[in-house]
Amino acid sequence: MRRLRIPVLLSVAVLAAGVATAAVAHDSGADQQTPKRNAAPKAAHPQVFGAPVTIPSGDNLLASVACPAGTVPTGGGGVTQGFRVFLTDSFVASTGQWSVRGTNTDPNPQFLRAFAICTTP
């Protein structure tokens, strides 16, 4: 019994010291350097939407959007009107535009619209 008492007491002391250190660090405001999650972004990155493109049933078409002058696309994608339009490609075009390609598997015509996230280079 005596052989277990010393390691157990030592473990309890180490744990208590760790808890006390964490409590002091928390009370001292050491975590104030962590940025707030709702802080404003450092730079504006507008999302620009292109004109809707009508995709006939069974067809695959391209929709594109250009960023405003002085900005370049850093990302983008597409939005659709229906559930049966599948995006097959999403890429930056060599002209500084973002393009998406979609296939309409619905029996009715559907819309595809490209969007780009633009930033100053």
Rank of each mutant, 00 (worst) to 15 (best):
R3D: 14
R3W: 11
L4F: 14
R5K: 11
I6Y: 05
L9P: 02
L10I: 14
V12M: 12
V12D: 00
A13N: 04
A13D: 03
V14P: 04
V14L: 13
V14H: 02
A16V: 13
A17C: 05
A23H: 07
A25F: 08
A25H: 03
A25G: 08
H26A: 15
D27F: 15
S28P: 04
S28M: 12
G29K: 01
G29N: 04
A30I: 10
D31N: 13
D31Q: 09
Q32R: 09
Q33N: 13
T34F: 13
R37P: 11
N38M: 14
A40E: 12
A40P: 03
P41I: 02
K42Y: 05
H45F: 13
H45G: 08
P46T: 02
P46M: 06
P46N: 00
Q47F: 11
Q47A: 12
V48W: 01
G50S: 14
A51D: 08
P52K: 06
I55Q: 04
I55F: 04
P56Q: 10
D59P: 01
A63M: 06
A63C: 03
S64T: 09
V65M: 03
P68H: 05
A69Y: 05
A69F: 11
G70C: 08
T71D: 02
T71Y: 02
T71I: 00
P73F: 00
G77Y: 01
G77H: 02
G78W: 00
G78T: 05
V79S: 12
T80L: 00
Q81M: 07
R84N: 12
R84V: 12
F86M: 10
L87E: 06
D89N: 15
S90Y: 00
S90M: 11
V92M: 14
V92R: 06
V92N: 03
A93P: 01
S94K: 08
G96E: 02
Q97W: 01
Q97F: 03
Q97A: 11
G102D: 08
G102Q: 04
G102V: 07
T103M: 13
N104L: 07
T105I: 14
P107D: 06
N108Y: 12
P109M: 15
Q110W: 04
Q110M: 12
F111R: 15
L112I: 12
R113S: 13
A116G: 06
C118M: 06
C118N: 02
C118P: 00
C118F: 04
P121N: 11
